[in-house]
Amino acid sequence: MKLIDYGVREDERPYIEEWSKENNVEVKIVSDLLNPETIEQAKGFDGVVAYQQLPYEPGIFDKMNEFGIHVLSLRNVGVDNVPFDALKKNDIKLTNVPSYSPTAIAEYSVTGLMILLRSMKSMIRKVDQHNFLWAPDIGRELNELTVGVAGTGRIGQAAIKIYQGFGAKVIAFDKYHNDNIEKQGLYVDTLDQLLKESDVVTLHLPSLGKGNTVINKDSIAGMKDGAIVVNTGRGDLINTQDLYDAVVSEKLSGAVLDVYENEVGIFNSDRSGEVLQDKLLSDMIHNPKIIVSPHIAFYTTTAVKNMATISLDSMVDELNNGKSDNEIDLN
């Protein structure tokens, strides 16, 4: 068995090499992303593993079929950048890593919120300039707030436990109820109700499709004055301009954004010394009430190892048994 792994970062390489040695499976590591040019390197291999934020072009799968490769294993959760029609046309199966570390993302949502509640962004900048005055950067306490968790999958459930540990009142919304959360009586009936009752809204939802935002001008109007939005889910859950305007007008008191609707091509790149052409992103970065980070909520050693190894395990299951627990239904 020979596998080829695309878009591999240096922090992933040791885990892939270790897996290859332990499982006695040859894995070619490629730093380049998977595209119509780099797919040529896959000739002679049995399966393709990849991770990237950019769309997978349909022509890639024509080539995979030509090479006799019929499994693509993703090292991430999201599959919205994969053209299912092209996979089905070429009889290619798809797997993902549905859960690489829910706790990592849940912990990060709380980390960002605490930075915001304690005005750490402003305070750090002041201290860097040798300004040691306390005011006006007085903090707020999480234990006094109501946190609304939108989405109660693995990450949302982990977030609920952490927020409860801080003593916050937690409410939740999800189209599909989790029995444990149901037993605790945390669910509200509608997303609008969650937005209305929450001091903090933390988003742990999948993408709802382009243009289907959860946080926008209309929904913000129904939120509490001074509420905070935390998004470690998907950038397109928010109309970012509407959110920014609400923070500037002080309808909302702040936001924590680890994802951004226009992040592709910007996040995980070094733009040191450059003037950002994305004015909205630049404005948010410079606003003391908005915490922006480059899609790193997942980025822990535990999560990176799981992404690297579970994707390879899924590939082996598909090639040896014709089925993996992590296979995606393309219909």
Rank of each mutant, 00 (worst) to 15 (best):
G68L: 03
G112E: 04
L113S: 03
T103M: 11
S119R: 13
R125D: 15
T111N: 06
Y100P: 02
L94P: 03
K121E: 01
K88Q: 12
I124K: 09
G59Q: 14
G68A: 03
K126E: 14
D91E: 07
L74N: 03
F84R: 12
D85S: 15
A106L: 07
I60F: 02
S109K: 02
M114E: 01
I60W: 01
D80P: 12
G59S: 14
K88H: 09
A104R: 04
P98C: 10
G112K: 02
G78R: 09
I105K: 07
K89S: 15
M64H: 08
I115V: 14
M120I: 14
G112W: 01
V97F: 03
A86K: 13
I92A: 07
I115Y: 08
K121F: 01
A86M: 13
A104M: 07
S99V: 12
K126F: 09
K93M: 10
I124E: 05
M123F: 14
E66Y: 02
G68E: 00
R75E: 06
K121Y: 03
M114Q: 06
Y108M: 06
N76F: 08
A104N: 05
L87I: 15
T111A: 12
N76D: 10
L113F: 09
E107V: 06
R125K: 13
L113G: 04
V71H: 00
Y100R: 11
V79N: 15
S101K: 06
A106Y: 03
V110A: 12
V71D: 00
D91R: 00
G59D: 12
H70Q: 05
K88C: 08
S109D: 05
G59L: 11
F84I: 13
K93R: 13
D80V: 10
S119H: 14
M123V: 15
I115R: 08
N65M: 02
N90A: 10
